[in-house]
Amino acid sequence: MTVTPIPTPSATPDQIEPTKLVARKPRLRRRTPGERIFNAVNIVLLTGFALMCLIPFIHVIGSSFATPGELATSNFVLIPKEWTLAAWQYILSTPTIFRAMGVSVFVTVVGTFLSLVVTAMMAYALAKPYLLGRRSINFLVIFTMLFSGGMIPTFIVVSKLGLLDSLWSLILPATVNAFNLVIMRNFFQGIPDSLEEAARIDGCSEIGVFLRVVLPLSMASIATIGLFYAVTYWNTYMGAVLYINDSSKWPIQVLLRQVVIVSSGMNADATVVDVVPPAQSVKMAVIAVATLPMLAVYPFVQRYFVKGAMIGSVKG
Score class of each variant (00 low, 15 high):
Ile97Tyr: 13
Phe49Cys: 13
Ser104Arg: 07
Phe300Ser: 04
Asp202Ser: 03
Pro7Met: 07
Ile311Cys: 08
Val262Met: 12
Ile191Leu: 14
Gly203Lys: 06
Thr236Tyr: 00
Asp269Leu: 10
Val282Ser: 05
Ser115Ile: 01
Ser247Ala: 12
Val118His: 05
Thr73Asp: 09
Phe300Leu: 12
Phe98Cys: 03
Arg31His: 12
Leu131Cys: 07
Leu51Pro: 01
Ser263Arg: 10
Val297Tyr: 02
Tyr298Gly: 00
Gly190Gln: 02
Tyr229Asn: 11
Glu35Met: 11
Val209Asp: 01
Gly190Ile: 02
Met266Pro: 00
Met266Leu: 14
Gly111Pro: 05
Gly312Ala: 08
Phe155Met: 07
Val260Tyr: 04
Val105Ser: 01
Val259Ser: 00
Val231Lys: 04
Gly34Ile: 06
Ser247Gln: 08
Asn75Pro: 07
Ile225Pro: 02
Asp165Tyr: 05
Leu45Glu: 03
Pro173Asn: 02
Phe49Val: 15
Phe98Arg: 13
Ala279Lys: 09
Leu140Ala: 12
Thr224Met: 15
Lys315His: 12
Ala174Thr: 14
Ser136Asn: 08
Leu28Tyr: 08
Lys20Phe: 12
Thr112Phe: 01
Thr47Leu: 09
Thr94Tyr: 02
Glu82Ser: 13
Phe49Arg: 05
Ala199Gln: 09
Ile225Tyr: 09
Asn177Cys: 02
Ser63Pro: 05
Pro18Lys: 04
Trp168Gln: 02
Met1Leu: 14
Ala279Val: 10
Ala66Trp: 03
Gly69Cys: 10
Ile252Arg: 07
Asn42Val: 07
Thr112Val: 08
Leu255Asp: 00
Leu71Gln: 11
Leu211Ile: 07
Leu131Lys: 01
Val276Asp: 14
Leu114Ala: 13
Thr32Pro: 00
Gly226Lys: 05
Ser264Cys: 01
Leu78Gln: 11
Met266Ser: 15
Met145Asp: 05
Arg30Leu: 14
Ala199Met: 06
Thr232Lys: 10
Leu163Tyr: 00
Val41Phe: 11
Thr73Ala: 12
Gly312Met: 09
Ala178Glu: 04
